[in-house]
Computed example of a mutant assay.
Amino acid sequence: MNEQTGTTEPTTSNERTRRGFLRGLAGTLALTGFGQAFGQDRASTGTLDHAAVLDLAATAEALAVTLYHQALTTATFRMDGDTAEHLRAVLDAEAHHLEVLRSLGAAPLASRFYLPRELLPDAGAFADTALHLEAVFIGAYLAATHQFAQQGQPELAATAAQLGASEAQHLTLLSQLAGLGPGDLTLPAASFRRVADAGPALAPFLRGGPGALGPVALPQAEQLRLVLGQRAATPGRPFARTYTPSPRGRG
């Protein structure tokens, strides 16, 4: 939000810093993949088992919860009441996504994240970062839907589609708040063939780099309650109520 209008109208004064953060590690981490970005090698085979896909999705949701919580609690740019309420709704949804994934046995592979240093004082930096991440989340959930379908897991595929549909709503809302309009895509882009392909786009938030702030800890339940207050949102029900691993292990 700029000082005059209270909207998330992106600025250009810190563009180089923001771009440097978002792209800082992508070149090198593109060679190692998502698994190694977490200090693991779960993606080295080119495919991920069901549990690994769920864990990576949970990690992305934990990052989203951290981002929106930081914006609502520590940002110094001007934010009007309507915008704050919209962002609380997004935070509430992301927290519910993480809860759903945890109910399916997922565990975030990280609980501390790095954010662009300019995100808190600059509405443009926040808008750029949030739009970037929501687009990545949509692409990753489309990839997860496809992977689960290929692997004969229709309930997990449908659940991934539900989560991706919610992220698409967030992208539209954030685009509107940023003054960019609702967008003109008839279908979200299938940016990744596999969930692991989203690694380079998310790596700077996990490892830090030039222009990074953090690490910032994932907020706990009580911290979220303080921000969300008495919101009356009704959580949706996922297709996959429980996830039972195959007899061969977690996959």
Rank of each mutant, 00 (worst) to 15 (best):
T47I: 12
G33F: 02
D55C: 07
A64L: 07
T47V: 15
G39K: 13
V53D: 00
G33S: 04
A71E: 03
A84D: 06
S44T: 13
Q40W: 01
L25Q: 09
G24N: 07
G35R: 01
G46Y: 09
L56N: 07
A60R: 08
T76S: 11
A26N: 10
S44C: 08
F77C: 02
A84I: 06
Q36I: 02
L72Y: 11
H86M: 05
H69D: 04
R42A: 14
L72H: 14
V65L: 02
G35Y: 08
V65N: 01
A64W: 03
R78Q: 15
Q36F: 04
A37Y: 00
D55N: 15
L29G: 03
F34Q: 09
E85G: 05
E61V: 11
V53K: 01
V53L: 04
L54S: 02
L31S: 12
V65Y: 00
E61M: 11
D82K: 12
F38K: 00
E85V: 02
D41P: 00
T73D: 07
R23F: 13
T32R: 12
D41H: 14
D80L: 03
H50T: 14
A51L: 15
G81I: 08
A75H: 10
T45Y: 09
F77W: 13
T73K: 09
A84S: 15
H69Q: 07
G24R: 02
L54R: 05
A26F: 04
G81V: 10
Q36M: 08
G46M: 11
R42K: 15
S44D: 15
A71D: 03
D82F: 09
A75I: 13
V65D: 00
R23H: 11
L56S: 11
D49N: 15
G46F: 10
H50Y: 08
T45G: 12
L54D: 01
H69Y: 13
A64F: 05
L54Y: 02
A30F: 00
L29S: 11
A43T: 12
T76Q: 03
R23Y: 11
L48Q: 04
F38M: 09
D80T: 05
T47G: 07
D49E: 06
R23S: 11
A75W: 10
T59K: 04
S44E: 14
L31I: 09
E61F: 10
D82N: 14
T74Y: 06
L54H: 04
H86D: 13
R42S: 14
D49S: 12
D41Q: 15
T76R: 01
A62T: 06
A71V: 15
V65W: 00
V53Y: 00
A60M: 12
A26L: 11
H86W: 05
G33T: 02
L63Y: 03
Y68S: 03
A26M: 13
R42D: 14
A60W: 03
V53H: 00
A57S: 12
R42E: 14
Y68A: 05
L48A: 08
E61A: 12
F38I: 01
G46L: 11
D55M: 09
F34C: 08
G27R: 13
T59Y: 07
L48H: 03
A75L: 14
A30V: 00
A84N: 01
G46V: 10
A37C: 11
D55F: 04
L29Y: 10
L31E: 13
